[in-house]
Amino acid sequence: DETGKELVLVLYDYQEKSPREVTIKKGDILTLLNSTNKDWWKIEVNDRQGFVPAAYLKKLD
């Protein structure tokens, strides 16, 4: 059920640097789980959840 889920576009590649982070690729469109922290957003990638720098993402309307 995708209702109410926010999507984000990945602006730059990011390689995870800790187990709490996930790797993302430029151009991916992913589900945003939590954006309350202005610097690190929690997203879902391939059934994995983790954090990436918010500056690497853009919210889609």
Rank of each mutant, 00 (worst) to 15 (best):
L11C: 06
G4T: 13
F51L: 07
T36P: 04
A54T: 05
D28V: 06
V8A: 07
S18W: 07
T36E: 14
L7A: 06
S35V: 06
V52Q: 00
V45L: 09
K58H: 09
E2V: 13
D39L: 14
L9D: 01
G4V: 14
P19K: 09
N37E: 10
K38N: 11
K38H: 12
K59S: 05
S35W: 11
D1R: 07
L9A: 05
N46C: 12
L33W: 06
E2Y: 12
Q49I: 12
K42G: 04
A55M: 12
G50H: 06
G4F: 14
D13M: 03
K59Q: 06
I43Q: 00
D1A: 12
L57N: 00
L33E: 02
W40V: 03
K38P: 15
D61Q: 11
V45S: 09
K58S: 09
Q49D: 06
Y56N: 09
L11M: 08
W40Y: 07
Y14V: 01
F51W: 15
L60A: 04
G27S: 04
L30Y: 11
G27V: 01
D13F: 04
E44I: 10
E16P: 10
L11V: 06
I29D: 00
L32D: 00
D1I: 14
P19T: 09
N34L: 09
P19G: 08
F51Y: 14
F51T: 03
L32Y: 01
K25M: 09
L11N: 02
Q15A: 12
D39W: 15
D47I: 06
I29S: 02
E16K: 12
K26T: 07
Q49M: 09
S35C: 10
S35M: 08
K38G: 09
K42M: 14
Q49S: 11
P53H: 02
Q15C: 10
K17Y: 05
K5D: 08
D39T: 15
L32Q: 00
K5R: 14
V22A: 08
D47G: 15
V22W: 04
D61G: 15
D47R: 10
D39P: 02
R48E: 05
L60S: 04
Q15G: 07
N37D: 14
Y12C: 13
L60K: 04
K25Y: 14
S18H: 11
K38M: 10
V22G: 02
